[in-house]
Design a protein around this nucleic acid. Structure first.
Lengths: 122, 122
DNA sequence: GTCCTGCCTAGATGAATTTCGAATCAGCCC
DNA sequence: GGGCTGATTCGAAATTCATCTAGGCAGGAC
């Protein structure tokens, strides 16, 4: 085993939103965060997420025609995004509207922050 | 490592740093970016990424014992991260060292930026 | 040279994912 | 109520994925 691989961290306070690069992530936190990244790890869902995040809210009827996929398939992907906590849905009359959950979005962004000088030296 | 060290993802091909929420992402860009998120969408890989990003560089021999998984499995996950363009590897003597690719890391963070007007007004 | 250690590759396998058509649920209009 | 449209859920097929064991290559010690 090498010596310099031991991480030098004292930020044991923040577990929820500390950047990935701040210190090694523990198993529990990884289990919580990974599904969010996983939800964005599909091109269809990434485009759906982008379409939803680009406007205050958007109807499923406006999302589906943008893809060459069946309605149930789009519905499935939207559910994955919703289960991951990235979006919210609300039925209003005939249509169902989706919007982004800004706090989840912000949290993901914070996780990818580069704290200070660790990863920038490579 | 010489032939495998070339990342599959071409970072320059991505519309660099345009946030997901700025405008709907097109199909090509989604196809390039999604594998990066997908690579982070597994708890093991997320912890690996975090361990690598927390230090300037780290030896595989320090990564493997942190998990209850076989060596080949860890090697597989490291390859996924490498193919996604998130990390780089280099053999020096007996050991292989991994380090983060800061530009990929920064780009992912930029993608999750909120352009301060769209997603917060919903 | 031989042996040992560290890491990767190859092949196999059970689990998860993506996708569809069919069926179902929710709301509106006549 | 009956019919229509929008969205989800159900059940199944094809694909992909995470993981293992076995084996191979590179480098150092002898």
């Amino acid at each position: 085993m090498s010596k310099q691989a031991v991480p030098v961290v004292d930020l044991n306070a923040v577990a929820c939103c500390a950047p990935i690069a701040a210190r090694p992530m523990d198993d529990d936190q990884a289990a919580v965060v990974a599904p969010m990244f996983k939800a964005l790890g599909d091109p269809v869902r990434l485009r759906l997420m982008s379409m939803i995040a680009s406007v205050p809210e958007i109807c499923v009827c406006d999302l589906t025609p943008a893809f060459d996929l069946s309605g149930p398939t789009i519905s499935h992907h939207l559910r994955v995004l919703r289960d991951a906590g990235l979006v919210d849905s609300e039925r209003r009359g005939t249509w169902v509207w989706y919007r982004v959950r800004p706090e989840a979005f912000r949290q993901l962004g914070a996780l990818l922050d580069i704290p200070t000088a660790t990863a920038t030296t490579g």
